[in-house]
């Protein structure tokens, strides 16, 4: 085991250490996706890349929005906007659990002093038509991550299987830093010339968005935008594969998927506004799932075509995320 690193001192240091750790394991460190999503899983680097035969290794922070969780910045643990850290490795390496435990050590959790447990928690996203098996990881009784082996996305089997990690960054950092209220958590170094707390950065946002999410958002507009996003997604996918301008075959899975993400977030906003009844709920979820399914199908189509081209993407035995590990070489 590596030497015990000193504990991080700020929220951003936790993030930086995760970035460094997973970069060191060979992941492409991506930037957040520039759209509103409910969870890091919606990032196309997770959802879509989990499909198709090509290997993949990425890690990134993804801001996530859950309008119904807004508490005006008052609740010590609940936020309507928070950060998730995602790691996705395809195919899942044989030592995925060990790699994950290494990341906990990297952020200062001493394995010799704490009780780490893998507790069954199967993951399912009805809106994405996705499911996987895995655990929630407990550290001294606290859930610090979700650990999932993706089996299906958008109704399609994942082959090879991706391993996915999701860290709830605020909660994890609060634990590591020993802070009880999220707003009191140091965001940057506490000794910096201008030390900032999480609340200095986000309290206003939490308060303002809570009001807008719950009481002000124009539901008629949200409904309209939902319909628009749905229609646009379907229209994009219905376009002929051959682009008349370039003469190339261009399946527009990614732009279509953006519309699916939009529809999903609009549904969450409508839900927070309390205008979706129990019976309607299922119907809306089904509509988003249908979009996700169609996008996944389109993506697979383009991926399969790509992986058949001789010069496409990383070679199957390519960048295994950990350099010194026995290569699993089970790519495409």
């Amino acid at each position: 085991m590596a030497a015990r690193p000193a504990r991080p001192r700020s929220f951003q240091e936790v993030i930086l250490r995760l970035q460094a750790y997973w970069a060191g394991q060979g992941c492409a460190v991506l930037q957040p996706y520039d759209m509103e999503v409910g969870a890091g899983t919606f990032h196309p680097a997770t959802t879509l890349r989990a499909l198709g035969p090509r290997p993949w290794a990425a890690a990134f922070v993804q801001p996530s929005r859950r309008p119904t969780d807004g508490r005006y910045g008052e609740n010590p643990n609940r936020l309507q906007h928070y950060y998730q850290y995602q790691v996705i490795l395809k195919p899942s390496p044989p030592d995925f659990q060990a790699l994950y435990l290494g990341s906990l050590q990297a952020i200062g959790i001493d394995m010799e002093m704490h009780d780490i447990r893998f507790v069954e928690d199967d993951w399912e996203s009805p809106t994405l038509g996705a499911w996987g098996l895995g655990w929630e990881v407990w550290c001294d009784g606290m859930e610090v991550s979700q650990f999932t082996y993706f089996q299906q996305v958008g109704g399609h089997d994942c082959h090879p299987v991706s391993g996915e990690l999701t860290y709830g960054l605020e909660r994890l950092a609060m634990y590591v830093l020993g802070v009880d209220h999220v707003m009191a958590m140091p965001f940057n170094d506490p000794d910096a010339p201008i030390p900032l707390k999480y609340g200095d950065v986000f309290r206003q946002a939490e308060e303002q968005y809570s009001r807008w999410n719950f009481d002000v958002a124009d539901t008629a507009m949200l409904l309209r935008h939902f319909e628009d996003a749905e229609a646009e997604c379907q229209r994009i996918l219905a376009a002929p594969e051959e682009d008349p301008k370039t003469g190339r075959r261009i399946v527009m899975a990614l732009p279509a998927y953006d519309q699916c993400i939009k529809a999903s977030h609009l549904f969450n906003l409508l839900d927070a506004r309390g205008v979706i009844s129990v019976t309607e709920r299922q119907a809306y979820i089904g509509r988003v799932r249908a979009l996700a399914r169609a996008c996944a199908g389109a993506w697979l189509q383009s991926e399969t075509a790509l992986s058949e081209e001789p010069d496409a993407g990383p070679a199957p035995s390519g960048p295994a995320p950990s350099g010194n590990r026995a290569g699993d070489g089970q790519g495409a």
Binding site: P91, Q151, P160, V161, D328
Partner: peptide
């Protein structure tokens, strides 16, 4: 009751079999 695949293989077990 529910099993899974992992990595690039096709074998199914409740969680990866080592």
């Amino acid at each position: 009751p529910r099993s899974m695949r992992w990595g690039g293989g096709t074998l199914k077990w409740v969680r990866p079999l080592h």
